[in-house]
Simulated assay, not measured.
Amino acid sequence: MSLNPCADAMLVELIPPDRIAAISHYSRDPGASSISMEVARRFAVNHGTAEEILALRPDLVIADSFTSPSTREAFARAGLKTLYLGWASTIDQSKAQVREIAAAVDAVPAGEAMLSRIDKAVTDAQTDRPLVPALLWIGGNTVSGGGTLLDEMMVKAGFSDHAAHYGLQNTGYLPIEHVVVDPPRVMLVPDQSGRDAGSRAAQMRGWALARARAKVHHARFERSLVNCGGPVIAKAMTRLAEVRREAGE
């Protein structure tokens, strides 16, 4: 059983569906999931409470390092086998998690195959051409800055992270003024076609950049590609390589 949406993304590719008792409820949320809603709906979900996990008595519980001490204690008292995942901020750290989970669920060959796909996608996306300044918007006015997995992937795919250029580390809020005064050449944006706050922020940026006559290539970068590592790395690297070609860089 997985309480972690990033573990969900790995498990659904590592083992057969009948071995997964439940995935995290986050994987049913398009804003938090790294798997498609079609895949997520095939599985039961849990909300991370000790009571529901104890009632199902899974052979293995995969949770994250932020799991509360009381929940950890409840799992320990019940004798549940648990695996707690930390935050992977580099490709190598994410690959280590793939190996850890694959070993825990007795799926080492599938794990090695997943790692091969990651390595191939990273290699295929690399270029010796000059880095192209880019901003990766997660939603609203939130961007991915330096010191993140996304930052490393962008650089390996031939982009320089313009949020890091502005001095932003990790994930955070970026005022529109920075973008207008010193725009990137590429903006990676999620699909925000509705009327939510993210769409309004994107519309405001578009209006401001147009007024400033800034030439910026906008490219869709699905929200599901920014939440986790593991198998998502291969998909994200492939998309980043596509964007470079689309932008003529």
Rank of each mutant, 00 (worst) to 15 (best):
P130M: 02
P130I: 04
P130G: 06
P130C: 00
P130Q: 01
L131S: 04
L131T: 04
L131H: 08
V132R: 02
V132Q: 03
V132P: 03
V132H: 03
P133S: 11
P133I: 07
P133T: 11
P133V: 09
P133D: 01
P133M: 01
P133G: 08
A134E: 06
A134I: 09
L135A: 06
L135P: 12
L135G: 11
L135V: 13
L136M: 15
L136Y: 02
L136G: 01
L136H: 06
L136T: 13
W137F: 15
W137Q: 11
W137T: 08
W137N: 08
W137P: 07
W137R: 15
I138Q: 14
I138F: 15
I138M: 13
I138H: 15
I138S: 14
G139Y: 15
G139Q: 11
G139F: 14
G140W: 01
G140N: 11
G140S: 07
G140E: 04
G140R: 08
N141L: 02
N141T: 15
N141Q: 13
N141P: 03
T142S: 14
T142L: 12
T142E: 09
T142P: 06
V143P: 12
V143W: 12
V143A: 10
S144T: 15
S144F: 14
S144A: 15
G145F: 07
G145D: 06
G146K: 13
G147T: 05
G147W: 12
G147N: 07
G147R: 09
T148H: 10
T148R: 10
T148F: 10
T148G: 09
L149C: 08
L149P: 08
L149H: 10
L149F: 13
L150A: 15
L150E: 15
L150K: 08
D151C: 10
E152S: 05
E152G: 01
E152T: 08
M153I: 05
M153S: 07
M153Q: 11
M153D: 02
M153Y: 09
M154F: 09
V155K: 09
V155I: 10
V155S: 06
V155Y: 04
A157C: 07
A157L: 04
A157M: 02
G158D: 05
G158I: 00
F159P: 00
F159D: 00
F159N: 03
F159I: 00
F159A: 00
F159M: 00
F159T: 01
D161M: 02
H162P: 01
H162E: 03
H162Y: 07
H162C: 00
H162R: 08
H162Q: 08
